[in-house]
């Protein structure tokens, strides 16, 4: 059933399927997000900007992608 060449993750509460070995940087690119306006958390821990190119997403990872919005 599950494709051995892919991983299944959750991004901002939604299910996503990625190619096995995808990095955080590749996820942002696939989503069409400008990397400078996003911060990333994986499994409730910050995934710092400096690690995005190397950090490989694993099966079941829960990813939060945040940005700035208006607020007080």
């Amino acid at each position: 059933m599950s494709d051995p060449e892919s991983v299944h993750i959750t991004v901002n509460g939604e299910p996503w399927e990625l190619a096995l070995g995808s990095t955080v940087a590749e996820l942002l690119e696939r989503l069409g997000l400008r990397p400078e306006v996003v911060a990333v958390e994986i499994n409730r821990e910050l995934a710092p900007r400096s690690t995005r190119a190397e950090r490989i997403l694993a099966e079941g990872d829960v990813v939060e992608l945040v940005t700035l919005v208006g607020g007080g």
Binding site: N12, G13, G32, E36, V66
Partner: peptide, 19 residues
């Protein structure tokens, strides 16, 4: 100036950013 941090809009048609 203060700003808030929230989930990014994954809709590809999302408009410009506060940034």
């Amino acid at each position: 100036v203060t700003v808030a941090v929230r989930r990014v809009n994954l809709d590809p048609s999302a408009g410009p950013s506060l940034f």
